[in-house]
Simulated assay, not measured.
Amino acid sequence: MVKKIFIEIPTWLGDAIMTTPAIENIIKSFPEAKITLLGSYVSTEALKNFENIEKVIIDDSKKAGSRYLNLIKLAKKVGKVDIAISFRRSFSSKLMMFFIDSKKTISYKRYTKKEIHQVLRYNDFINRKLNLKNKAGDLKLNFTPFSYKKPTLGLNPGATYGSAKRWYPEEFAKLATKLSKNYDIVLFGGPNETAIASDIEKILVKNKITNFQNIAGKTSVSELIEKIAGLDLFVTNDSGPMHIAAAFKIKTVAIFGPTKFTETNQWNNPNETIITKNLYCAPCMKRKCPLGHHDCMKLIKAEDVLKTLGEENGGKEKL
Rank of each mutant, 00 (worst) to 15 (best):
N131H: 12
P157I: 07
M1L: 09
S92N: 13
K114Q: 12
T19A: 10
S220I: 00
P10V: 03
G39C: 04
C289E: 04
Y168A: 04
I57W: 01
T273V: 11
L71P: 00
A33D: 13
V56C: 14
L155M: 04
V81K: 02
E303Q: 09
I209P: 04
F99L: 14
I116Y: 04
T259Q: 01
M242I: 07
F6L: 07
K135P: 09
I106K: 01
S102W: 00
S198R: 14
D184T: 08
I9K: 03
K316P: 06
T177I: 10
G310M: 09
I300Q: 00
G292F: 05
D60K: 15
K165N: 11
T105E: 10
E24K: 14
P21N: 08
I244G: 02
E32A: 14
A216Y: 08
P169M: 10
T252Y: 01
F6R: 02
T252L: 03
E171W: 00
Q266G: 07
T44C: 15
P31Y: 08
K94N: 15
S222N: 11
T219L: 15
S163E: 14
L71M: 11
A302C: 09
L47H: 03
F125T: 07
G314F: 10
K165T: 05
K135Q: 12
R128P: 08
I200R: 05
G158F: 02
I300T: 04
T20V: 00
M297P: 00
F50Q: 06
G79P: 07
I255V: 14
T262Y: 11
E223I: 08
N278K: 08
R128C: 08
L204Y: 04
N211S: 13
T19E: 06
A216W: 05
W167H: 05
T112D: 11
I215T: 09
A136T: 11
R67G: 07
L155K: 01
V56A: 13
F87Q: 02
Q213L: 13
Y183L: 02
A229W: 01
C281M: 09
N313M: 12
V305S: 06
N70S: 15
W267N: 09
